[in-house]
């Protein structure tokens, strides 16, 4: 890694947004840097961000800003990539995630998706207020290794229970693990809903997925 590349990783990881974005744009648009390499550097920086989050040094604001920096640089880099078939990095473990019906909260879910993504998982986020039937349809289509149900309100307890019961009734349960999370979720709710596990934050969600799927790679 040359000095310029080191700077990009360091500035992204340190939340020096203006400098990092300007450097990435210069590399991509003026210096003809390989866009795949720039995105690799971004991923490396996101890895540092994730580690700092796990260590309790970074919190939600850093993850949100990091996600946006990644998105902005990606928007410049991705159109420049000349793809060859099969060249994209393959991610093996698939996680389907959504906020259960009756609940519109999405910040926690988005952070979990982001952290899973930078840890090598393929994530399909099906949004908020997701009806039971949509979960079933998406599970059949996506064939996930893990299903994550998110919910912040107490009304989500019953929605989660209902969703998991429907998954069982449809004979789909054996194919994957189910994790739940959100503001009020604890072991009591896990037992009530029948989920395999719960997590209190994105770090725990990543750990659960890694444990179940063998590191996600």
């Amino acid at each position: 890694m040359n000095e310029q590349e080191r700077n990009l990783v360091e500035w992204l990881a340190d939340m020096r947004e203006e400098e990092a974005t300007a450097l990435a744009n210069r590399m991509l648009l003026e210096e003809g840097a390989d866009p795949v390499r720039v995105l690799e550097l971004c991923r490396e920086a996101m890895g540092v961000v994730g580690k700092r989050f796990e260590a309790g040094e970074y919190f939600l604001p850093e993850l949100v800003l990091a996600g946006e920096m990644l998105e902005n640089i990606g928007a410049v880099a991705k159109p420049l990539i000349k793809k060859k078939p099969g060249e994209e990095a393959k991610k093996l473990a698939r996680v389907l995630i959504g906020t259960v019906h009756g609940d519109l909260h999405d910040i926690g879910k988005n952070i979990v998706s982001f952290m899973l993504d930078i840890n090598g998982f393929e994530v399909r986020d099906i949004g908020v207020d997701v009806p039971v039937k949509t979960f079933l349809d998406e599970i059949r289509d996506y064939k996930p290794h893990v299903v994550g149900l998110s919910g912040f309100l107490t009304v989500a307890f019953d929605s989660m229970k209902e969703t998991i019961a429907a998954i069982e009734d449809a004979n789909l349960r054996r194919e994957f693990k189910i994790m739940i999370g959100g503001g009020q979720i604890d072991e009591t709710v896990r037992g009530y809903t029948g989920a395999d596990a719960f997590g209190v934050n994105a770090v725990e969600a990543v750990a659960l997925c890694k444990n179940w799927t063998g590191d996600g790679k």
Binding site: T154, F157, Q184, I185, D186, T188, V189, G191, Y192
Partner: peptide
């Protein structure tokens, strides 16, 4: 008293 206790306990 926790919401999970109150609603499911």
């Amino acid at each position: 008293l926790s919401p999970s206790l109150m609603t499911t306990g």
